[in-house]
């Protein structure tokens, strides 16, 4: 069974008297260990798509099965639990807690799982070491470079062992060299068996993925599988 299954997902926003169709009848399946990119221009609905996939938002209509769970009838608290268990978010602006150090940020999702401090530290340390930041654990976000911050965010996403990693323009705030590093990390994670969904408007990023879904006006315009590793990132 597919890890993610969307059937007839629509999302309408009311802007005054006008109804904006951010998503308009989306059907898609994502399999385990997929490496998928949503691309499209701004306003194409890919951000809304990410919010729905990440269980941050609920669709106006349609069905969403995530890892066998129908997300439709869950309340806010249950959605929080789903986000904690199933989804690892990686944001464009990193979204780290500014007053917590790297370790604290990575430990944060584990608090909501009622995991004790000692074990939290241990698991978080492993995650930080995985992203190559084992020596930066006590740095605050503002003492880290952009690339390091994004690594902390990736560690935070990995630490809960989610079924999918959701990345929203993960390299949008990074320079090209760091972009390569982060995308290499993504490739490695994919190779380790993680399921990755990346929302981006940069073709170079999308070319890293195995499957590219192009969105336009709230609809899926193109959905194609590509040969891995064909894209060359230039600096």
């Amino acid at each position: 069974m597919a890890l993610i299954q969307l059937q007839g997902i629509t999302k309408y926003y009311e802007m005054g008297s006008q109804v904006v169709k951010a998503l308009d009848g989306i059907d898609i399946e994502v399999l385990k260990n997929d490496y998928l990119a949503f691309i499209g221009s701004s306003g194409s609905g890919k951000s809304t798509m990410l919010n729905i996939l990440g269980c941050l938002d609920k669709p106006t209509d349609g069905q969403y099965h995530l890892n066998g769970t129908n997300v439709e009838n869950l309340d806010q608290n249950e959605l929080s639990e789903i986000r904690n268990k199933e989804i690892g978010f990686i944001f464009q602006s990193f979204n780290l807690l500014p007053r917590a150090n790297a370790l604290g940020n990575v430990m944060q999702p584990l608090i909501y799982r009622n995991i004790g401090l000692k074990q939290r530290k241990q698991v978080a340390m492993e995650a930080l070491e995985r992203v190559g930041l084992g020596d930066r654990t006590d740095h605050l976000p503002n003492q880290l470079s952009g690339g390091q911050r994004q690594r902390v965010a990736i560690a935070r996403a990995l630490v809960t062992h989610p079924s999918i990693l959701l990345a929203d323009e993960p390299t949008g705030n990074l320079d090209s060299r760091t972009t390569i590093e982060i995308m290499q990390l993504f490739d490695e994670l994919h190779a380790e068996g993680h399921t990755l969904i990346v929302v981006t408007h940069e073709d170079e990023i999308a070319q890293h993925c195995q499957r590219i879904v192009e969105m336009k006006d709230g609809k899926i315009f193109n959905d194609q599988v590509v040969e891995k590793g064909t894209a060359e990132l230039t600096s």
Partner: peptide
């Protein structure tokens, strides 16, 4: 507000 949003995104419930 943003911090609260982050915490909620990574799994904080209302009571947290």
């Amino acid at each position: 507000t943003r911090e609260i949003g982050i915490c909620k995104a990574i799994g904080a419930k209302r009571h947290h």
